[in-house]
């Protein structure tokens, strides 16, 4: 097998073992959910409960994906509500 060029080795492995359907599906799912969350937040700050309702997505899934977006810097945490219960979230500028 010929030596793969440094910096372009992913192709080598893709040719060799391919990519599992599961990994592909997972990527698609995340991309779709990320887009839907970011689109929703474009309209303004929202709490997880509001996002969950708007996207008809279970609360725990919103928590998982939203927090991941916070972790990777696309969303930031806003204010907490008057009852000190739910934070709202907004896009990071």
């Amino acid at each position: 097998m010929e030596e793969a060029e440094k910096g372009k080795t992913s192709r080598y492995l893709r040719d060799k073992k391919g990519v599992s359907e599961e990994a592909r599906e997972n990527l698609k799912k995340f991309t779709r959910i990320r887009k839907s969350i970011l689109d929703a937040l474009k309209e303004g700050e929202m709490t997880i409960a509001q996002l969950s309702q708007k996207l008809s997505m279970p609360g725990h899934e919103v928590v998982f994906y939203l927090m991941t977006l916070v972790k990777y810097g696309q969303v930031q945490t806003g204010e907490i509500d008057d009852m000190d219960e739910y934070y709202s979230y907004k896009l990071k500028k």
């Binding site: 709490t47 997880i48 409960a49 969950s52 609360g59 725990h60 919103v62 928590v63 998982f64 939203l66 927090m67 916070v70 972790k71 945490t77 907490i80 000190d84 219960e85 739910y86 934070y87």
Partner: peptide
């Protein structure tokens, strides 16, 4: 920590 505060994983509420 993952949430930078303590939240319910079910709906993001601060537990009390």
């Amino acid at each position: 920590r993952p949430f930078n505060t303590i939240l319910r994983p079910g709906d993001g509420k601060m537990p009390d």
